[in-house]
């Protein structure tokens, strides 16, 4: 299989073009968020092909020595590509190899994405908060943090209208309340709802 065909780029493509094509395909075929076994199976297979093609192109480039951009690519780009492709454990290895002195707001943001992908939500929330603290002007970090809290809050038993909350007031409750109030008023000689 020709890796260039899989990614849909020409063999003369620049590293940026290859990366852009890979990112677009990874986003398209990310098995997460798809429903149905047939669909996820197909997406996972496609994803595997895309990853293989990408690795093959990068490997041959670094072997030829002409465009050795695998080594020169920053940890940020590598980790970001892996996160986009949903390869969280590999992204984590890349992130953990960064020494603690050079951990920037972006590092914490990507760490948060990796933790979220793994289902480690407490760590994800703390990493996003760190990212926001280090770079308060970045909207993306703030949105990631807010999104995470909003999404989980949908499942909270304290959410309005939650069936497990037990303190919601339905239209039936309102009608029953009015009927009771009317009966009581009539007992005392008055009337609340004149037609009944």
């Amino acid at each position: 299989m020709n890796p260039y065909e899989v990614l849909g780029v020409s063999p003369q493509a620049t590293p940026e073009e290859v990366k852009a094509a890979y990112r677009a395909l990874a986003r398209k075929y990310n098995p997460q968020g798809l429903v149905g076994e047939a669909l996820t199976g197909f997406a996972a297979e496609k994803m595997e092909q895309i990853n293989e093609a990408y690795d093959a192109i990068i490997f041959s480039a670094s072997q030829n020595g002409g465009q050795n951009w695998k080594g020169s690519a920053s940890w940020f780009e590598r980790a970001q590509n892996l996160v986009t492709a949903g390869r969280y454990s590999e992204a984590e290895v890349v992130l953990d190899s960064v020494d603690s002195a050079s951990r920037t707001a972006e590092w914490y943001y990507l760490k948060g994405c990796v933790c979220e992908g793994k289902g480690w939500y407490d760590d994800a929330s703390r990493a996003y908060q760190n990212a926001c603290r280090m770079d308060p002007s970045n909207r993306e970090f703030q949105r990631a943090s807010q999104d995470l809290h909003e999404r989980t809050h949908q499942y909270s038993p304290y959410r309005k209208g939650s069936s497990a909350g037990g303190d919601s007031c339905s239209s039936c409750d309102i009608c029953t309340g009015l009927m009771c109030a009317d009966c009581m008023c009539e007992c005392c000689g008055g009337d609340l709802i004149s037609c009944c």
Partner: peptide, 15 residues
Amino acid sequence: QRAEFSLNASLMEIN
């Protein structure tokens, strides 16, 4: 808040 957030997150995954 932290406990509640983490519990909600697990509830989300469970659901």
